[in-house]
Design a protein around this nucleic acid. Structure first.
Lengths: 147, 147
DNA sequence: CTTATTACCTACCTCTTTAGTAGGTTTTTT
DNA sequence: AAAAAACCTACTAAAGAGGTAGGTAATAAG
Protein backbone atom coordinates (compact mmCIF):
# COMPACT_ATOMS: atom_id res chain seq x y z
CA UNK A 1 0.00 0.00 0.00
CA UNK A 2 1.32 3.26 -1.15
CA UNK A 3 -1.18 6.04 -0.55
CA UNK A 4 -2.29 6.53 3.04
CA UNK A 5 -5.49 8.09 4.34
CA UNK A 6 -3.78 11.48 4.36
CA UNK A 7 -3.56 11.53 0.59
CA UNK A 8 -6.93 9.94 0.04
CA UNK A 9 -8.69 12.29 2.43
CA UNK A 10 -6.92 15.28 0.84
CA UNK A 11 -8.41 14.36 -2.52
CA UNK A 12 -11.88 13.94 -1.07
CA UNK A 13 -11.67 17.31 0.67
CA UNK A 14 -10.61 19.07 -2.49
CA UNK A 15 -13.40 17.45 -4.48
CA UNK A 16 -15.82 18.52 -1.75
CA UNK A 17 -14.51 22.07 -1.93
CA UNK A 18 -14.89 22.15 -5.69
CA UNK A 19 -18.43 20.88 -5.51
CA UNK A 20 -19.73 23.04 -2.66
CA UNK A 21 -18.04 26.42 -2.80
CA UNK A 22 -19.41 29.13 -5.04
CA UNK A 23 -16.69 31.65 -4.38
CA UNK A 24 -17.48 31.28 -0.68
CA UNK A 25 -15.44 29.65 2.08
CA UNK A 26 -16.46 26.31 3.49
CA UNK A 27 -15.91 25.60 7.19
CA UNK A 28 -14.00 22.40 7.84
CA UNK A 29 -16.80 21.27 10.13
CA UNK A 30 -19.13 20.97 7.12
CA UNK A 31 -16.62 19.01 5.09
CA UNK A 32 -15.85 16.67 7.97
CA UNK A 33 -19.54 15.92 8.40
CA UNK A 34 -20.23 15.41 4.72
CA UNK A 35 -17.18 13.22 4.24
CA UNK A 36 -17.54 11.50 7.59
CA UNK A 37 -13.92 12.11 8.55
CA UNK A 38 -12.70 13.27 11.97
CA UNK A 39 -12.48 17.06 11.89
CA UNK A 40 -9.39 17.04 14.09
CA UNK A 41 -7.55 14.73 11.77
CA UNK A 42 -8.61 16.77 8.75
CA UNK A 43 -7.15 19.86 10.38
CA UNK A 44 -3.66 18.42 10.14
CA UNK A 45 -4.22 17.61 6.48
CA UNK A 46 -5.57 21.08 5.70
CA UNK A 47 -2.48 22.63 7.28
CA UNK A 48 -0.36 20.80 4.71
CA UNK A 49 -2.59 21.75 1.78
CA UNK A 50 -2.67 25.34 2.94
CA UNK A 51 1.10 25.61 3.28
CA UNK A 52 1.55 24.15 -0.18
CA UNK A 53 -0.85 26.76 -1.53
CA UNK A 54 -3.34 24.22 -2.78
CA UNK A 55 -6.16 25.69 -0.70
CA UNK A 56 -6.80 28.99 0.99
CA UNK A 57 -7.88 29.25 4.62
CA UNK A 58 -9.71 32.24 6.11
CA UNK A 59 -10.06 32.75 9.86
CA UNK A 60 -13.11 33.72 11.81
CA UNK A 61 -16.84 33.76 11.26
CA UNK A 62 -17.77 33.30 7.62
CA UNK A 63 -14.34 31.84 7.07
CA UNK A 64 -13.24 28.38 6.06
CA UNK A 65 -11.41 26.91 3.09
CA UNK A 66 -11.64 27.27 -0.65
CA UNK A 67 -9.71 26.18 -3.71
CA UNK A 68 -7.30 28.68 -5.21
CA UNK A 69 -7.35 27.54 -8.83
CA UNK A 70 -9.84 26.02 -11.23
CA UNK A 71 -10.27 22.26 -10.65
CA UNK A 72 -8.86 21.71 -14.15
CA UNK A 73 -5.57 23.16 -12.94
CA UNK A 74 -4.95 20.72 -10.11
CA UNK A 75 -3.03 17.62 -11.09
CA UNK A 76 -3.79 14.62 -8.89
CA UNK A 77 -0.10 13.84 -8.64
CA UNK A 78 0.55 17.27 -7.24
CA UNK A 79 -2.01 16.88 -4.45
CA UNK A 80 -0.84 13.42 -3.50
CA UNK A 81 2.81 14.38 -3.57
CA UNK A 82 2.11 17.23 -1.17
CA UNK A 83 0.38 15.08 1.41
CA UNK A 84 2.35 11.87 1.03
CA UNK A 85 5.78 13.43 0.75
CA UNK A 86 6.84 10.93 -1.89
CA UNK A 87 5.10 8.72 -4.43
CA UNK A 88 8.13 6.58 -5.17
CA UNK A 89 7.33 2.84 -5.20
CA UNK A 90 10.70 1.97 -3.63
CA UNK A 91 12.97 3.74 -1.16
CA UNK A 92 15.82 3.74 -3.71
CA UNK A 93 13.96 6.36 -5.77
CA UNK A 94 12.91 8.62 -2.97
CA UNK A 95 14.04 12.18 -3.33
CA UNK A 96 16.94 12.96 -1.02
CA UNK A 97 18.06 9.37 -0.64
CA UNK A 98 21.69 9.04 -1.54
CA UNK A 99 22.07 6.45 -4.30
CA UNK A 100 23.25 3.12 -3.01
CA UNK A 101 26.65 1.91 -4.16
CA UNK A 102 25.07 -0.94 -6.07
CA UNK A 103 22.98 1.41 -8.20
CA UNK A 104 25.42 1.41 -11.11
CA UNK A 105 24.92 -2.24 -11.94
CA UNK A 106 21.65 -2.93 -10.13
CA UNK A 107 19.54 -5.22 -12.27
CA UNK A 108 16.29 -4.06 -10.73
CA UNK A 109 16.75 -0.29 -10.63
CA UNK A 110 15.71 0.37 -14.26
CA UNK A 111 12.50 -1.54 -13.65
CA UNK A 112 11.72 0.56 -10.57
CA UNK A 113 12.54 3.72 -12.46
CA UNK A 114 10.08 2.85 -15.22
CA UNK A 115 7.39 1.99 -12.69
CA UNK A 116 7.96 5.31 -10.99
CA UNK A 117 7.63 7.14 -14.31
CA UNK A 118 4.45 5.35 -15.25
CA UNK A 119 2.79 6.08 -11.91
CA UNK A 120 3.74 9.75 -12.00
CA UNK A 121 2.73 10.20 -15.62
CA UNK A 122 -0.64 8.70 -14.88
CA UNK A 123 -1.27 10.81 -11.80
CA UNK A 124 -0.05 14.00 -13.43
CA UNK A 125 -2.28 13.43 -16.42
CA UNK A 126 -5.50 13.40 -14.43
CA UNK A 127 -6.93 16.55 -12.89
CA UNK A 128 -9.30 17.23 -10.04
CA UNK A 129 -11.88 18.11 -12.65
CA UNK A 130 -11.53 14.66 -14.20
CA UNK A 131 -12.40 13.04 -10.90
CA UNK A 132 -15.43 15.27 -10.40
CA UNK A 133 -16.84 14.68 -13.86
CA UNK A 134 -15.64 11.11 -14.19
CA UNK A 135 -13.76 11.76 -17.42
CA UNK A 136 -10.84 9.46 -16.70
CA UNK A 137 -11.74 6.89 -19.33
CA UNK A 138 -11.64 9.51 -22.09
CA UNK A 139 -8.27 10.70 -20.86
CA UNK A 140 -6.76 7.25 -21.00
CA UNK A 141 -8.31 6.25 -24.31
CA UNK A 142 -5.29 7.16 -26.37
CA UNK A 143 -2.08 6.33 -24.60
CA UNK A 144 -0.24 9.58 -25.22
CA UNK A 145 0.10 10.20 -21.48
CA UNK A 146 2.51 7.29 -21.37
CA UNK A 147 5.93 8.38 -22.61
CA UNK B 1 6.65 3.89 -0.70
CA UNK B 2 5.06 0.71 -1.72
CA UNK B 3 7.58 -2.08 -2.04
CA UNK B 4 9.59 -2.89 1.08
CA UNK B 5 12.99 -4.51 1.36
CA UNK B 6 11.30 -7.91 1.52
CA UNK B 7 10.12 -7.61 -2.06
CA UNK B 8 13.26 -5.95 -3.33
CA UNK B 9 15.55 -8.49 -1.70
CA UNK B 10 13.42 -11.34 -3.02
CA UNK B 11 13.97 -10.12 -6.57
CA UNK B 12 17.70 -9.76 -6.04
CA UNK B 13 17.92 -13.26 -4.61
CA UNK B 14 16.06 -14.76 -7.52
CA UNK B 15 18.25 -12.92 -10.01
CA UNK B 16 21.29 -14.20 -8.12
CA UNK B 17 19.94 -17.74 -8.27
CA UNK B 18 19.32 -17.48 -11.99
CA UNK B 19 22.82 -16.17 -12.62
CA UNK B 20 24.79 -18.56 -10.42
CA UNK B 21 23.08 -21.92 -10.42
CA UNK B 22 23.78 -24.40 -13.19
CA UNK B 23 21.32 -27.01 -12.06
CA UNK B 24 23.04 -26.97 -8.69
CA UNK B 25 21.82 -25.63 -5.35
CA UNK B 26 23.20 -22.40 -3.96
CA UNK B 27 23.66 -22.05 -0.19
CA UNK B 28 22.01 -18.95 1.22
CA UNK B 29 25.31 -17.98 2.79
CA UNK B 30 26.79 -17.37 -0.66
CA UNK B 31 23.85 -15.28 -1.79
CA UNK B 32 23.88 -13.23 1.38
CA UNK B 33 27.55 -12.47 0.91
CA UNK B 34 27.25 -11.61 -2.76
CA UNK B 35 24.20 -9.43 -2.23
CA UNK B 36 25.43 -8.01 1.06
CA UNK B 37 22.19 -8.77 2.85
CA UNK B 38 21.89 -10.26 6.35
CA UNK B 39 21.64 -14.01 5.99
CA UNK B 40 19.27 -14.27 8.90
CA UNK B 41 16.90 -11.78 7.37
CA UNK B 42 17.10 -13.51 4.02
CA UNK B 43 16.09 -16.76 5.68
CA UNK B 44 12.68 -15.38 6.47
CA UNK B 45 12.26 -14.23 2.90
CA UNK B 46 13.32 -17.59 1.48
CA UNK B 47 10.74 -19.31 3.66
CA UNK B 48 8.04 -17.27 1.92
CA UNK B 49 9.42 -17.93 -1.57
CA UNK B 50 9.76 -21.60 -0.79
CA UNK B 51 6.20 -21.95 0.50
CA UNK B 52 4.86 -20.19 -2.59
CA UNK B 53 6.81 -22.63 -4.75
CA UNK B 54 8.92 -19.96 -6.37
CA UNK B 55 12.16 -21.57 -5.23
CA UNK B 56 13.19 -24.99 -4.07
CA UNK B 57 15.20 -25.59 -0.89
CA UNK B 58 17.29 -28.65 -0.19
CA UNK B 59 18.59 -29.51 3.29
CA UNK B 60 22.03 -30.65 4.27
CA UNK B 61 25.50 -30.49 2.84
CA UNK B 62 25.49 -29.71 -0.86
CA UNK B 63 22.03 -28.27 -0.45
CA UNK B 64 20.76 -24.75 -0.85
CA UNK B 65 18.23 -23.05 -3.06
CA UNK B 66 17.46 -23.06 -6.75
CA UNK B 67 14.80 -21.74 -9.09
CA UNK B 68 12.06 -24.12 -10.12
CA UNK B 69 11.18 -22.67 -13.53
CA UNK B 70 12.97 -20.92 -16.35
CA UNK B 71 13.57 -17.22 -15.57
CA UNK B 72 11.29 -16.38 -18.52
CA UNK B 73 8.43 -17.96 -16.64
CA UNK B 74 8.59 -15.81 -13.53
CA UNK B 75 6.51 -12.66 -13.70
CA UNK B 76 7.85 -9.85 -11.50
CA UNK B 77 4.35 -9.14 -10.24
CA UNK B 78 4.06 -12.70 -9.05
CA UNK B 79 7.25 -12.53 -6.98
CA UNK B 80 6.41 -9.18 -5.45
CA UNK B 81 2.86 -10.19 -4.67
CA UNK B 82 4.13 -13.22 -2.79
CA UNK B 83 6.48 -11.29 -0.56
CA UNK B 84 4.50 -8.07 -0.14
CA UNK B 85 1.11 -9.65 0.32
CA UNK B 86 -0.56 -6.94 -1.71
CA UNK B 87 0.47 -4.50 -4.41
CA UNK B 88 -2.63 -2.33 -4.16
CA UNK B 89 -1.83 1.39 -4.06
CA UNK B 90 -4.66 2.09 -1.61
CA UNK B 91 -6.23 0.09 1.19
CA UNK B 92 -9.65 0.29 -0.53
CA UNK B 93 -8.42 -2.11 -3.21
CA UNK B 94 -6.71 -4.62 -0.99
CA UNK B 95 -7.93 -8.14 -1.33
CA UNK B 96 -10.15 -9.15 1.56
CA UNK B 97 -11.09 -5.61 2.53
CA UNK B 98 -14.84 -5.25 2.63
CA UNK B 99 -15.88 -2.43 0.31
CA UNK B 100 -16.65 0.77 2.15
CA UNK B 101 -20.21 2.06 2.03
CA UNK B 102 -19.11 5.09 0.03
CA UNK B 103 -17.69 2.97 -2.76
CA UNK B 104 -20.81 3.20 -4.92
CA UNK B 105 -20.49 6.93 -5.53
CA UNK B 106 -16.86 7.48 -4.59
CA UNK B 107 -15.34 9.97 -7.00
CA UNK B 108 -11.82 8.68 -6.46
CA UNK B 109 -12.28 4.92 -6.58
CA UNK B 110 -12.24 4.60 -10.40
CA UNK B 111 -8.94 6.48 -10.47
CA UNK B 112 -7.43 4.12 -7.89
CA UNK B 113 -8.75 1.12 -9.78
CA UNK B 114 -7.08 2.27 -12.99
CA UNK B 115 -3.82 2.91 -11.18
CA UNK B 116 -3.97 -0.54 -9.69
CA UNK B 117 -4.52 -2.08 -13.13
CA UNK B 118 -1.66 -0.16 -14.68
CA UNK B 119 0.78 -1.17 -11.96
CA UNK B 120 -0.19 -4.83 -12.13
CA UNK B 121 -0.16 -4.96 -15.91
CA UNK B 122 3.31 -3.48 -15.94
CA UNK B 123 4.69 -5.84 -13.31
CA UNK B 124 3.05 -8.89 -14.86
CA UNK B 125 4.43 -8.02 -18.27
CA UNK B 126 8.07 -8.13 -17.18
CA UNK B 127 9.82 -11.39 -16.35
CA UNK B 128 12.84 -12.26 -14.27
CA UNK B 129 14.64 -12.88 -17.54
CA UNK B 130 13.94 -9.31 -18.64
CA UNK B 131 15.66 -7.99 -15.54
CA UNK B 132 18.69 -10.20 -16.03
CA UNK B 133 19.16 -9.28 -19.69
CA UNK B 134 17.93 -5.72 -19.35
CA UNK B 135 15.28 -6.11 -22.04
CA UNK B 136 12.69 -3.92 -20.39
CA UNK B 137 12.89 -1.11 -22.92
CA UNK B 138 12.05 -3.48 -25.78
CA UNK B 139 9.11 -4.83 -23.83
CA UNK B 140 7.65 -1.41 -23.27
CA UNK B 141 8.30 -0.10 -26.75
CA UNK B 142 4.85 -0.87 -28.05
CA UNK B 143 2.20 -0.25 -25.47
CA UNK B 144 0.24 -3.44 -25.85
CA UNK B 145 0.87 -4.42 -22.25
CA UNK B 146 -1.41 -1.56 -21.24
CA UNK B 147 -5.02 -2.56 -21.66
C1' DC C 1 -15.82 45.76 22.73
C1' DT C 2 -17.41 41.42 23.55
C1' DT C 3 -18.70 36.98 21.79
C1' DA C 4 -19.01 33.41 18.54
C1' DT C 5 -16.78 31.22 14.94
C1' DT C 6 -13.28 29.66 12.54
C1' DA C 7 -8.37 28.39 11.25
C1' DC C 8 -4.09 27.14 13.21
C1' DC C 9 -0.60 25.20 16.55
C1' DT C 10 1.66 21.80 19.86
C1' DA C 11 1.83 17.77 22.11
C1' DC C 12 0.64 13.23 22.86
C1' DC C 13 -1.06 8.32 22.14
C1' DT C 14 -1.96 3.49 20.42
C1' DC C 15 -1.36 0.17 17.03
C1' DT C 16 0.90 -2.00 13.17
C1' DT C 17 4.65 -2.79 10.20
C1' DT C 18 9.43 -2.95 9.01
C1' DA C 19 13.77 -4.67 9.30
C1' DG C 20 16.04 -7.08 11.44
C1' DT C 21 18.60 -10.37 15.60
C1' DA C 22 19.18 -14.62 18.39
C1' DG C 23 19.18 -19.20 19.18
C1' DG C 24 17.72 -23.49 18.39
C1' DT C 25 15.95 -27.96 15.49
C1' DT C 26 15.78 -30.96 11.53
C1' DT C 27 17.52 -32.98 7.38
C1' DT C 28 21.05 -34.66 4.45
C1' DT C 29 25.67 -35.66 2.73
C1' DT C 30 30.39 -36.99 3.64
C1' DA D 1 29.48 -39.19 13.92
C1' DA D 2 30.22 -34.61 12.15
C1' DA D 3 29.46 -30.90 9.23
C1' DA D 4 26.52 -28.19 6.47
C1' DA D 5 22.66 -26.59 5.19
C1' DA D 6 17.46 -25.34 5.46
C1' DC D 7 13.91 -24.41 8.62
C1' DC D 8 11.42 -22.77 12.91
C1' DT D 9 10.17 -19.73 16.96
C1' DA D 10 10.61 -15.85 19.53
C1' DC D 11 12.05 -11.33 20.40
C1' DT D 12 13.21 -6.23 19.61
C1' DA D 13 13.97 -1.28 18.23
C1' DA D 14 12.44 2.19 15.34
C1' DA D 15 9.26 4.30 12.36
C1' DG D 16 4.90 5.43 10.47
C1' DA D 17 -0.21 5.44 10.45
C1' DG D 18 -4.13 7.31 12.18
C1' DG D 19 -5.67 9.56 15.07
C1' DT D 20 -7.02 12.57 19.99
C1' DA D 21 -6.73 16.59 23.25
C1' DG D 22 -6.39 21.08 24.41
C1' DG D 23 -5.20 25.17 23.49
C1' DT D 24 -4.15 30.14 20.71
C1' DA D 25 -4.97 33.63 17.12
C1' DA D 26 -7.72 36.02 13.80
C1' DT D 27 -12.00 37.88 12.20
C1' DA D 28 -16.86 39.11 11.68
C1' DA D 29 -21.37 40.20 13.77
C1' DG D 30 -23.93 42.11 17.57
Amino acid sequence: MMISTRGRYALRVMIDLAEHSQGSFIPLKDIAERQDISQKYLESIMTILSKKNLVQGVHGKGGGYSLIRDPKDYKIGEILLSTEGSLAPVACLECGVSTCDRAADCKTLPMWGKLNNIINQYLDHITLDDLIHNTIEERLKNKDWLK
